[in-house]
Design a protein around this nucleic acid. Structure first.
Lengths: 200, 200
DNA sequence: GAGTTATGTAAGCGCTGTAAACATGAGAGG
DNA sequence: CCTCTCATGTTTACAGCGCTTACATAACTC
Protein backbone atom coordinates (compact mmCIF):
# COMPACT_ATOMS: atom_id res chain seq x y z
CA UNK A 1 0.00 0.00 0.00
CA UNK A 2 2.89 2.31 0.55
CA UNK A 3 6.05 1.97 -1.47
CA UNK A 4 6.98 -0.59 -4.13
CA UNK A 5 3.71 -2.33 -4.92
CA UNK A 6 1.85 -4.52 -7.40
CA UNK A 7 4.47 -6.91 -8.72
CA UNK A 8 3.80 -10.49 -7.73
CA UNK A 9 2.70 -10.21 -4.17
CA UNK A 10 1.78 -6.59 -4.04
CA UNK A 11 3.92 -5.32 -1.21
CA UNK A 12 5.88 -8.16 0.31
CA UNK A 13 8.16 -5.88 2.30
CA UNK A 14 5.27 -4.46 4.29
CA UNK A 15 3.53 -7.83 4.50
CA UNK A 16 6.67 -9.33 6.04
CA UNK A 17 6.84 -6.66 8.71
CA UNK A 18 3.15 -7.15 9.48
CA UNK A 19 3.52 -10.94 9.66
CA UNK A 20 6.60 -10.60 11.83
CA UNK A 21 4.75 -8.33 14.24
CA UNK A 22 1.87 -10.77 14.51
CA UNK A 23 4.16 -13.72 15.13
CA UNK A 24 6.07 -11.68 17.67
CA UNK A 25 2.98 -10.85 19.67
CA UNK A 26 1.46 -14.31 19.31
CA UNK A 27 4.32 -16.67 20.00
CA UNK A 28 7.10 -14.52 21.37
CA UNK A 29 10.46 -13.49 20.07
CA UNK A 30 11.85 -17.01 19.86
CA UNK A 31 9.17 -18.08 17.37
CA UNK A 32 9.99 -15.33 14.92
CA UNK A 33 11.55 -17.06 11.93
CA UNK A 34 11.83 -15.85 8.38
CA UNK A 35 10.21 -19.05 7.22
CA UNK A 36 7.19 -18.53 9.47
CA UNK A 37 6.97 -14.97 8.18
CA UNK A 38 7.06 -16.26 4.62
CA UNK A 39 4.38 -18.85 5.34
CA UNK A 40 2.10 -16.25 6.87
CA UNK A 41 2.65 -13.92 3.95
CA UNK A 42 1.83 -16.77 1.58
CA UNK A 43 5.13 -16.78 -0.26
CA UNK A 44 8.06 -19.16 -0.54
CA UNK A 45 10.52 -19.52 2.30
CA UNK A 46 13.25 -17.42 0.74
CA UNK A 47 11.13 -14.68 -0.81
CA UNK A 48 11.64 -12.28 2.13
CA UNK A 49 15.36 -12.26 1.34
CA UNK A 50 14.61 -10.09 -1.69
CA UNK A 51 13.63 -7.34 0.75
CA UNK A 52 15.64 -8.09 3.88
CA UNK A 53 19.18 -9.44 3.50
CA UNK A 54 19.02 -11.32 6.79
CA UNK A 55 16.86 -11.97 9.78
CA UNK A 56 18.23 -9.09 11.79
CA UNK A 57 17.31 -6.73 9.01
CA UNK A 58 13.67 -7.75 9.29
CA UNK A 59 13.72 -7.40 13.05
CA UNK A 60 15.20 -3.93 12.65
CA UNK A 61 12.40 -3.00 10.27
CA UNK A 62 9.85 -4.21 12.81
CA UNK A 63 11.60 -2.29 15.56
CA UNK A 64 11.68 0.85 13.43
CA UNK A 65 7.94 0.57 12.86
CA UNK A 66 7.55 0.10 16.60
CA UNK A 67 9.45 3.32 17.23
CA UNK A 68 7.22 5.23 14.83
CA UNK A 69 4.12 3.73 16.40
CA UNK A 70 5.37 4.59 19.87
CA UNK A 71 5.96 8.16 18.74
CA UNK A 72 2.39 8.28 17.43
CA UNK A 73 1.03 6.93 20.71
CA UNK A 74 2.97 9.52 22.67
CA UNK A 75 1.78 12.30 20.40
CA UNK A 76 -1.74 10.93 20.76
CA UNK A 77 -1.51 11.12 24.54
CA UNK A 78 -1.06 14.87 24.19
CA UNK A 79 -0.46 16.73 20.92
CA UNK A 80 1.34 19.78 22.32
CA UNK A 81 2.39 19.27 25.94
CA UNK A 82 3.24 22.35 27.96
CA UNK A 83 2.56 21.38 31.57
CA UNK A 84 4.00 18.71 33.84
CA UNK A 85 0.58 17.10 33.79
CA UNK A 86 0.82 16.69 30.00
CA UNK A 87 4.23 15.13 30.42
CA UNK A 88 2.85 12.63 32.89
CA UNK A 89 0.15 11.64 30.41
CA UNK A 90 2.87 10.99 27.85
CA UNK A 91 4.91 8.98 30.33
CA UNK A 92 1.87 6.84 31.07
CA UNK A 93 1.35 6.32 27.34
CA UNK A 94 4.97 5.15 27.06
CA UNK A 95 4.55 2.45 29.67
CA UNK A 96 1.14 1.52 28.32
CA UNK A 97 2.70 0.98 24.91
CA UNK A 98 5.20 -1.43 26.45
CA UNK A 99 2.44 -3.32 28.25
CA UNK A 100 0.21 -3.43 25.16
CA UNK A 101 2.98 -4.60 22.83
CA UNK A 102 5.42 -6.46 25.08
CA UNK A 103 7.14 -8.52 22.42
CA UNK A 104 7.45 -5.55 20.08
CA UNK A 105 8.81 -3.38 22.88
CA UNK A 106 11.37 -6.01 23.74
CA UNK A 107 12.37 -6.32 20.10
CA UNK A 108 12.92 -2.57 20.06
CA UNK A 109 15.33 -2.68 23.00
CA UNK A 110 16.58 -6.25 23.23
CA UNK A 111 19.66 -5.62 21.13
CA UNK A 112 21.88 -2.67 20.35
CA UNK A 113 20.59 -0.67 17.41
CA UNK A 114 23.78 1.13 16.46
CA UNK A 115 25.18 -1.27 13.84
CA UNK A 116 21.73 -2.10 12.50
CA UNK A 117 19.70 -0.46 9.79
CA UNK A 118 19.81 3.28 9.21
CA UNK A 119 16.02 3.15 9.31
CA UNK A 120 16.12 1.99 12.88
CA UNK A 121 18.77 4.47 13.97
CA UNK A 122 16.92 7.41 12.48
CA UNK A 123 13.68 6.28 14.10
CA UNK A 124 15.28 6.22 17.55
CA UNK A 125 16.94 9.55 16.93
CA UNK A 126 13.57 11.04 16.02
CA UNK A 127 12.11 9.68 19.23
CA UNK A 128 14.97 11.13 21.24
CA UNK A 129 14.47 14.56 19.72
CA UNK A 130 10.74 14.32 20.27
CA UNK A 131 11.22 13.61 23.98
CA UNK A 132 13.73 16.44 24.29
CA UNK A 133 11.33 18.79 22.54
CA UNK A 134 8.58 17.92 24.99
CA UNK A 135 10.80 18.41 28.01
CA UNK A 136 12.00 21.71 26.63
CA UNK A 137 8.42 22.86 26.08
CA UNK A 138 7.43 21.91 29.61
CA UNK A 139 10.61 23.14 31.31
CA UNK A 140 12.13 25.84 29.06
CA UNK A 141 14.75 26.79 31.60
CA UNK A 142 16.01 23.30 32.40
CA UNK A 143 18.76 21.37 30.65
CA UNK A 144 16.50 19.62 28.18
CA UNK A 145 19.03 16.97 27.21
CA UNK A 146 19.80 15.98 30.78
CA UNK A 147 16.27 16.13 32.08
CA UNK A 148 14.74 14.28 29.16
CA UNK A 149 17.35 11.58 29.55
CA UNK A 150 16.50 11.22 33.20
CA UNK A 151 12.75 11.14 32.78
CA UNK A 152 13.11 8.80 29.82
CA UNK A 153 15.29 6.48 31.86
CA UNK A 154 12.80 6.49 34.70
CA UNK A 155 9.85 5.71 32.45
CA UNK A 156 11.87 3.19 30.44
CA UNK A 157 12.88 1.39 33.61
CA UNK A 158 9.30 1.36 34.85
CA UNK A 159 8.22 -0.15 31.55
CA UNK A 160 10.78 -2.93 31.79
CA UNK A 161 10.06 -3.68 35.43
CA UNK A 162 6.38 -3.93 34.57
CA UNK A 163 7.20 -6.21 31.67
CA UNK A 164 9.25 -8.41 33.98
CA UNK A 165 6.38 -8.71 36.44
CA UNK A 166 8.29 -6.89 39.17
CA UNK A 167 5.58 -4.24 39.59
CA UNK A 168 1.85 -4.25 40.13
CA UNK A 169 0.34 -4.06 36.64
CA UNK A 170 -3.12 -5.27 37.65
CA UNK A 171 -5.04 -2.23 36.46
CA UNK A 172 -4.19 0.76 34.22
CA UNK A 173 -5.04 3.04 37.14
CA UNK A 174 -2.44 1.46 39.39
CA UNK A 175 0.17 1.75 36.67
CA UNK A 176 -0.74 5.37 35.99
CA UNK A 177 -0.56 6.26 39.68
CA UNK A 178 2.85 4.64 39.98
CA UNK A 179 4.21 6.56 37.02
CA UNK A 180 2.69 9.81 38.21
CA UNK A 181 4.33 9.53 41.62
CA UNK A 182 7.72 8.67 40.16
CA UNK A 183 7.74 11.36 37.48
CA UNK A 184 6.38 14.03 39.79
CA UNK A 185 9.10 13.29 42.30
CA UNK A 186 11.66 13.65 39.55
CA UNK A 187 10.76 16.90 37.89
CA UNK A 188 9.56 18.71 40.97
CA UNK A 189 13.20 18.95 41.82
CA UNK A 190 14.40 19.40 38.27
CA UNK A 191 12.17 22.44 37.75
CA UNK A 192 13.61 24.13 40.80
CA UNK A 193 17.18 23.66 39.63
CA UNK A 194 18.95 26.44 37.70
CA UNK A 195 20.26 24.38 34.78
CA UNK A 196 22.85 21.78 33.73
CA UNK A 197 22.50 18.97 36.21
CA UNK A 198 25.27 16.98 34.64
CA UNK A 199 28.73 17.47 33.24
CA UNK A 200 28.98 16.26 29.63
CA UNK B 1 34.39 -27.37 42.01
CA UNK B 2 31.16 -26.72 43.77
CA UNK B 3 28.35 -29.23 43.70
CA UNK B 4 28.17 -32.59 41.94
CA UNK B 5 31.73 -33.23 40.80
CA UNK B 6 34.16 -35.87 39.60
CA UNK B 7 32.03 -38.14 37.40
CA UNK B 8 33.00 -38.03 33.78
CA UNK B 9 33.57 -34.40 33.13
CA UNK B 10 33.89 -33.19 36.68
CA UNK B 11 31.20 -30.56 36.84
CA UNK B 12 29.53 -30.20 33.49
CA UNK B 13 26.65 -28.14 34.85
CA UNK B 14 28.96 -25.37 36.02
CA UNK B 15 31.16 -25.71 32.93
CA UNK B 16 28.11 -25.18 30.72
CA UNK B 17 27.15 -22.00 32.53
CA UNK B 18 30.71 -20.74 32.27
CA UNK B 19 30.94 -21.59 28.56
CA UNK B 20 27.55 -19.99 27.93
CA UNK B 21 28.65 -16.80 29.64
CA UNK B 22 31.81 -16.64 27.58
CA UNK B 23 29.96 -17.22 24.32
CA UNK B 24 27.39 -14.64 25.36
CA UNK B 25 29.99 -11.96 25.96
CA UNK B 26 32.06 -12.89 22.92
CA UNK B 27 29.52 -13.37 20.16
CA UNK B 28 26.26 -12.05 21.54
CA UNK B 29 23.01 -13.65 22.49
CA UNK B 30 22.20 -14.99 19.04
CA UNK B 31 25.37 -17.11 18.95
CA UNK B 32 24.56 -18.89 22.18
CA UNK B 33 23.74 -22.45 21.15
CA UNK B 34 23.80 -25.56 23.26
CA UNK B 35 26.04 -27.18 20.67
CA UNK B 36 28.57 -24.38 20.92
CA UNK B 37 28.44 -24.66 24.70
CA UNK B 38 29.05 -28.40 24.43
CA UNK B 39 31.98 -27.87 22.07
CA UNK B 40 33.57 -25.35 24.40
CA UNK B 41 33.07 -27.64 27.37
CA UNK B 42 34.68 -30.48 25.41
CA UNK B 43 31.71 -32.86 25.52
CA UNK B 44 29.27 -34.23 22.99
CA UNK B 45 26.53 -32.05 21.58
CA UNK B 46 23.76 -33.53 23.70
CA UNK B 47 25.61 -33.87 26.99
CA UNK B 48 24.32 -30.54 28.39
CA UNK B 49 20.79 -31.90 28.15
CA UNK B 50 21.54 -34.12 31.14
CA UNK B 51 21.78 -30.97 33.25
CA UNK B 52 19.49 -28.52 31.45
CA UNK B 53 16.30 -29.87 29.88
CA UNK B 54 16.26 -27.17 27.22
CA UNK B 55 18.06 -24.11 26.02
CA UNK B 56 15.97 -21.71 28.06
CA UNK B 57 16.89 -23.60 31.19
CA UNK B 58 20.57 -22.95 30.57
CA UNK B 59 19.94 -19.29 29.87
CA UNK B 60 17.98 -19.08 33.11
CA UNK B 61 20.90 -20.60 34.97
CA UNK B 62 23.22 -18.02 33.43
CA UNK B 63 20.81 -15.25 34.31
CA UNK B 64 20.51 -16.51 37.87
CA UNK B 65 24.29 -16.44 38.21
CA UNK B 66 24.20 -12.93 36.80
CA UNK B 67 21.72 -11.87 39.46
CA UNK B 68 23.92 -13.25 42.20
CA UNK B 69 26.98 -11.58 40.72
CA UNK B 70 25.12 -8.30 40.44
CA UNK B 71 24.10 -8.58 44.08
CA UNK B 72 27.74 -9.13 45.01
CA UNK B 73 28.83 -6.11 42.99
CA UNK B 74 26.22 -3.94 44.67
CA UNK B 75 27.22 -5.20 48.09
CA UNK B 76 30.84 -4.55 47.13
CA UNK B 77 30.02 -0.94 46.25
CA UNK B 78 29.00 -0.41 49.85
CA UNK B 79 28.54 -3.15 52.45
CA UNK B 80 26.08 -1.38 54.73
CA UNK B 81 24.64 1.76 53.13
CA UNK B 82 23.01 4.31 55.38
CA UNK B 83 23.33 7.60 53.52
CA UNK B 84 22.06 8.82 50.16
CA UNK B 85 25.69 8.97 49.07
CA UNK B 86 26.03 5.25 49.74
CA UNK B 87 22.92 4.61 47.70
CA UNK B 88 24.35 6.58 44.79
CA UNK B 89 27.49 4.47 44.89
CA UNK B 90 25.32 1.37 44.64
CA UNK B 91 23.32 2.85 41.78
CA UNK B 92 26.56 3.56 39.93
CA UNK B 93 27.66 -0.03 40.53
CA UNK B 94 24.38 -1.24 39.04
CA UNK B 95 24.88 0.63 35.80
CA UNK B 96 28.55 -0.28 35.71
CA UNK B 97 27.60 -3.94 35.94
CA UNK B 98 25.35 -3.54 32.92
CA UNK B 99 28.10 -1.80 30.95
CA UNK B 100 30.72 -4.36 31.99
CA UNK B 101 28.55 -7.38 31.15
CA UNK B 102 26.17 -6.15 28.45
CA UNK B 103 25.20 -9.51 27.01
CA UNK B 104 24.74 -11.03 30.45
CA UNK B 105 22.65 -8.08 31.59
CA UNK B 106 20.45 -8.39 28.53
CA UNK B 107 20.05 -12.12 29.11
CA UNK B 108 18.90 -11.30 32.63
CA UNK B 109 16.15 -8.99 31.41
CA UNK B 110 15.51 -9.91 27.79
CA UNK B 111 12.64 -12.26 28.59
CA UNK B 112 10.11 -12.61 31.36
CA UNK B 113 11.49 -14.67 34.20
CA UNK B 114 8.21 -15.71 35.83
CA UNK B 115 7.64 -19.05 34.09
CA UNK B 116 11.31 -19.93 34.09
CA UNK B 117 13.40 -21.71 36.64
CA UNK B 118 12.76 -21.36 40.34
CA UNK B 119 16.45 -20.60 40.68
CA UNK B 120 16.03 -17.51 38.55
CA UNK B 121 12.89 -16.35 40.30
CA UNK B 122 14.41 -16.68 43.75
CA UNK B 123 17.52 -14.83 42.60
CA UNK B 124 15.47 -11.86 41.40
CA UNK B 125 13.38 -11.93 44.56
CA UNK B 126 16.55 -11.80 46.63
CA UNK B 127 17.75 -8.83 44.62
CA UNK B 128 14.43 -7.06 45.10
CA UNK B 129 14.55 -7.58 48.84
CA UNK B 130 18.14 -6.42 48.90
CA UNK B 131 17.27 -3.16 47.18
CA UNK B 132 14.31 -2.61 49.46
CA UNK B 133 16.48 -3.24 52.48
CA UNK B 134 18.96 -0.62 51.32
CA UNK B 135 16.30 1.96 50.67
CA UNK B 136 14.75 1.26 54.04
CA UNK B 137 18.13 1.69 55.74
CA UNK B 138 18.75 5.00 53.99
CA UNK B 139 15.20 6.34 54.27
CA UNK B 140 13.59 4.59 57.25
CA UNK B 141 10.50 6.78 57.16
CA UNK B 142 9.76 6.40 53.46
CA UNK B 143 7.64 3.76 51.77
CA UNK B 144 10.50 1.38 51.05
CA UNK B 145 8.63 -0.67 48.48
CA UNK B 146 7.52 2.32 46.45
CA UNK B 147 10.75 4.25 46.68
CA UNK B 148 12.97 1.28 45.92
CA UNK B 149 10.84 0.49 42.89
CA UNK B 150 11.20 4.03 41.65
CA UNK B 151 14.93 4.29 42.17
CA UNK B 152 15.40 0.83 40.71
CA UNK B 153 13.38 1.80 37.65
CA UNK B 154 15.45 4.93 37.20
CA UNK B 155 18.76 3.12 37.46
CA UNK B 156 17.51 0.22 35.36
CA UNK B 157 16.39 2.59 32.64
CA UNK B 158 19.71 4.40 32.74
CA UNK B 159 21.46 1.07 32.33
CA UNK B 160 19.43 0.14 29.28
CA UNK B 161 19.75 3.54 27.66
CA UNK B 162 23.51 3.33 28.14
CA UNK B 163 23.48 -0.15 26.67
CA UNK B 164 21.55 1.12 23.66
CA UNK B 165 24.03 3.89 23.07
CA UNK B 166 21.51 6.62 23.79
CA UNK B 167 23.62 8.15 26.55
CA UNK B 168 27.17 9.36 26.86
CA UNK B 169 29.10 6.37 28.20
CA UNK B 170 32.53 7.65 27.20
CA UNK B 171 34.05 7.64 30.67
CA UNK B 172 33.05 6.13 34.00
CA UNK B 173 33.07 9.61 35.50
CA UNK B 174 30.48 10.88 33.03
CA UNK B 175 28.28 7.89 33.74
CA UNK B 176 28.64 8.33 37.48
CA UNK B 177 27.79 12.02 37.29
CA UNK B 178 24.70 11.28 35.24
CA UNK B 179 23.48 8.71 37.72
CA UNK B 180 24.24 10.95 40.69
CA UNK B 181 22.20 13.81 39.25
CA UNK B 182 19.25 11.58 38.41
CA UNK B 183 19.15 9.71 41.71
CA UNK B 184 19.68 12.85 43.78
CA UNK B 185 16.80 14.54 42.00
CA UNK B 186 14.63 11.56 42.78
CA UNK B 187 15.20 10.98 46.46
CA UNK B 188 15.66 14.57 47.50
CA UNK B 189 11.95 14.83 47.00
CA UNK B 190 11.18 11.34 48.25
CA UNK B 191 12.90 11.98 51.57
CA UNK B 192 10.83 15.10 52.16
CA UNK B 193 7.58 13.25 51.55
CA UNK B 194 5.65 11.80 54.53
CA UNK B 195 5.15 8.25 53.20
CA UNK B 196 3.25 6.12 50.67
CA UNK B 197 3.70 7.90 47.38
CA UNK B 198 1.53 5.42 45.56
CA UNK B 199 -1.75 3.57 45.98
CA UNK B 200 -1.28 -0.22 45.73
C1' DG C 1 31.56 -59.10 41.32
C1' DA C 2 26.34 -57.81 40.06
C1' DG C 3 22.84 -54.30 39.89
C1' DT C 4 21.39 -49.63 39.93
C1' DT C 5 21.82 -45.09 38.77
C1' DA C 6 24.06 -41.02 37.12
C1' DT C 7 26.40 -39.44 33.36
C1' DG C 8 28.02 -38.90 28.54
C1' DT C 9 27.66 -40.61 23.37
C1' DA C 10 25.72 -41.68 18.77
C1' DA C 11 22.26 -41.31 15.41
C1' DG C 12 18.43 -39.01 13.66
C1' DC C 13 14.20 -35.82 12.97
C1' DG C 14 12.39 -31.49 11.67
C1' DC C 15 13.35 -26.92 11.76
C1' DT C 16 16.14 -22.86 10.72
C1' DG C 17 19.14 -19.19 8.08
C1' DT C 18 21.39 -18.57 3.98
C1' DA C 19 23.07 -19.16 -0.79
C1' DA C 20 22.87 -20.52 -5.22
C1' DA C 21 20.24 -21.38 -9.93
C1' DC C 22 15.97 -20.95 -12.04
C1' DA C 23 11.23 -19.18 -13.30
C1' DT C 24 7.86 -15.41 -14.00
C1' DG C 25 5.76 -11.30 -15.13
C1' DA C 26 5.69 -6.03 -15.51
C1' DG C 27 7.56 -2.24 -18.24
C1' DA C 28 10.56 -0.17 -22.14
C1' DG C 29 12.02 0.05 -27.05
C1' DG C 30 11.10 -1.05 -31.40
C1' DC D 1 2.66 -6.88 -31.10
C1' DC D 2 7.14 -8.70 -30.01
C1' DT D 3 11.28 -8.94 -27.45
C1' DC D 4 14.49 -7.66 -24.13
C1' DT D 5 15.47 -6.55 -19.33
C1' DC D 6 15.16 -6.62 -14.67
C1' DA D 7 12.80 -6.82 -10.34
C1' DT D 8 10.42 -10.23 -7.92
C1' DG D 9 9.35 -14.85 -6.30
C1' DT D 10 10.50 -20.18 -6.51
C1' DT D 11 13.15 -24.26 -6.20
C1' DT D 12 16.77 -26.78 -4.52
C1' DA D 13 20.41 -27.50 -1.46
C1' DC D 14 23.49 -27.24 2.56
C1' DA D 15 25.10 -26.75 7.23
C1' DG D 16 23.79 -25.82 11.91
C1' DC D 17 20.42 -25.84 15.40
C1' DG D 18 17.13 -27.78 19.41
C1' DC D 19 15.59 -31.83 20.89
C1' DT D 20 14.45 -37.05 21.21
C1' DT D 21 15.58 -41.79 21.39
C1' DA D 22 18.51 -45.57 22.09
C1' DC D 23 22.89 -46.93 23.64
C1' DA D 24 27.49 -46.93 26.28
C1' DT D 25 30.20 -46.16 30.45
C1' DA D 26 31.60 -45.26 35.04
C1' DA D 27 30.68 -44.62 39.97
C1' DC D 28 28.37 -46.23 44.08
C1' DT D 29 25.84 -50.01 46.84
C1' DC D 30 25.64 -54.37 48.38
Amino acid sequence: MSQAAAYHHGDLAAACVQAARELLEEDGSAALSLRAVARRAGVSATAPYRHYPDRESLVSAVAAQGYRELAEDLAGAHPSPTTPEDLIAIAVAYVRFALDHPALFRAMFAEPCDPSSADRVSATAALTEYVQGIVHAVFPEADAAALSTTVWALVHGLAFLHLDGKLDSSTPEVVAAQIRAAVEALFTVAASLPASTRSA
